[in-house]
């Protein structure tokens, strides 16, 4: 066992062509190449993906939970921002 943990990486998987990558989880790895391999070994064992992105968790910039009131609550009463007034054509699966 090494003395220090390998850095943490966030894993994003594209489940099929045309869809966006989605966050799948995180893994430990020493570098980018190992991170891709570990993500493949851990998160695509059951045909979950066709493409993988990894990014060091330390490189993600996240919003501050203390800001969530100012950030997110004002959207709650703005119903007119939702496109619920359109009819979605039959057969459109991913909108």
């Amino acid at each position: 066992m090494q003395d220090e943990n390998w850095p943490l990486w966030e894993v994003f998987i594209r489940s099929k062509a045309g869809l966006a990558h989605r966050h799948a989880g995180s893994i430990h790895a020493a570098d980018a190449q190992m991170a891709i391999d570990h993500a493949r070994d851990v998160y695509t064992r059951r045909s979950e993906g066709v493409s993988i992105w990894v990014v060091r968790s330390a490189d993600l910039v996240a919003s501050d939970p203390a800001d969530s009131e100012a950030f997110f609550e004002p959207a709650a009463d703005k119903i007119y921002r939702h496109p619920t007034f359109y009819e979605i054509p039959d057969g459109v699966e991913n909108l």
């Binding site: 066992m1 390998w6 893994i27 430990h28 790895a29 570990h38 070994d41 064992r45």
Partner: peptide, 12 residues
């Protein structure tokens, strides 16, 4: 396995 991720790789 030396690490969880390596453990899974080996089992695969």
């Amino acid at each position: 396995g030396p690490e969880l991720e390596e453990e899974l790789a080996n089992a695969n």
